[in-house]
């Protein structure tokens, strides 16, 4: 083996070393152990809709009396989150399960939120505490976030003609960071079906529950891996696809799907014009110089 082939071998080994791990594994995401999150135990929810009342109350949304939320007729149709309903409870019948399953729907507070990546003006941000927050002041009303969200959560204030904003659950960010209280829905839940805590500990709790009661839960924590994971987690007595949850979303964060393309956009839009313009002006200058040269020569001759 001569020096060349030795270096070649080294080069191949080096390339294999650097490329193989990146092929095998997805990009590792930084998941903070201190992120707060919520765990909804669907086996406990009784569909009392107290969380809806408390959410309206805490967020200053239009509200009705507590007893009016006992109306069961709202369950006749599957509802979605709206501009003035940050959370809704829906009822589902599942195969082979003797009673209805109630599912509370709200923002999932994704680890890598699609809404934030779709937003042109960075109106959404993932806070260091966990919740995904929205800044009304910079929003231009494009509603790309609503299209980007895989859970169809953000809603728009179509009723407001002058200053409409996107509306969604904040996980009561200010309530727990400033007042030290649990989010309103978790506080009021009579069954304590919604647990507030650190995401890492909630995952432990969920695993512990599934491990201790394999007869009571399906072995799946929704939100642990879906679209890269979310800060809101669910455990359920029946398969999630029977409860209106999308199980076809995959584990790749939505922003990652477009990251390659989007990161090339500045390159193409900024560097390419600069390069081409540079090349053009260089060529122009050269031509000009050549032109002036010939004139000079002509003048001389």
């Amino acid at each position: 083996m001569d020096r060349n082939s030795f270096l070649k071998t080294l080069g191949v080994a080096g390339a294999a070393l650097t490329s193989l791990p990146s092929l095998g594994k997805a990009r590792t995401r930084v998941i903070s152990p201190d992120w707060m999150g919520m765990l909804t135990d669907l086996s406990l929810c009784v569909g009392c809709r107290r969380c809806e009342w408390a959410c309206n109350d805490a967020n200053g949304l239009p509200n009705e009396s507590l007893s009016s939320f006992e109306d069961q007729s709202v369950f006749d149709e599957t509802r979605r989150t709206e501009a003035y309903k940050f959370t809704v409870v829906n009822r589902f019948e599942a195969d082979g399960y003797p009673k209805p399953v109630y599912v509370k729907k709200q923002c999932m507070h994704c680890i890598e939120p699609a809404c934030a990546s779709a937003c042109l003006v960075k109106a959404f941000r993932k806070t260091s505490a966990g919740p995904v927050l929205y800044n009304e002041d910079v929003c231009i009303g494009c509603r790309y976030c609503m299209i980007a969200c895989p859970f169809h959560v953000p809603a728009y204030e179509y009723s407001d003609a002058f200053a409409p904003a996107v509306k969604k659950c904040t996980m009561c960010f200010e309530r727990f960071t400033e007042q030290g209280e649990k989010p309103a829905c978790a506080s009021i839940c009579p069954q304590e079906a919604i647990t507030f805590g650190k995401r890492s500990e909630l995952l432990q709790l969920a695993r512990e529950k599934i491990r201790s009661h394999p007869d009571r839960y399906v072995d799946h924590i929704y939100g642990e891996h879906e679209v890269g994971g979310s800060n809101w987690l669910y455990i359920s007595p029946v398969p999630f696809e029977q409860l209106g949850f999308r199980t076809d979303l995959g584990e790749t964060p939505y922003p990652e799907m477009t990251r390659g393309f989007l990161s090339a956009v500045p390159l193409v839009l900024v560097i390419w014009p600069m390069l081409l313009m540079g090349a053009y002006s260089f060529k122009q200058r050269k031509q000009k110089a050549e032109h002036s040269c010939t004139i000079d020569e002509e003048e001389v001759s």
């Binding site: 406990l44 009784v46 003797p98 009673k99 030290g180 209280e181 649990k182 506080s187 009021i188 839940c189 009579p190 069954q191 304590e192 647990t195 507030f196 805590g197 500990e201 909630l202 709790l205």
Partner: peptide, 26 residues
């Protein structure tokens, strides 16, 4: 108390309701 953050067991409110509602609602 609702401000108790104890993941190991439900608070008193949750404990009462889970016991009662498990049968009553069924």
């Amino acid at each position: 108390g609702t401000d108790v953050v104890n993941l190991k067991q439900p608070g008193l409110k949750g404990a009462y309701h889970r016991q009662c509602l498990t049968c009553h609602k069924d």
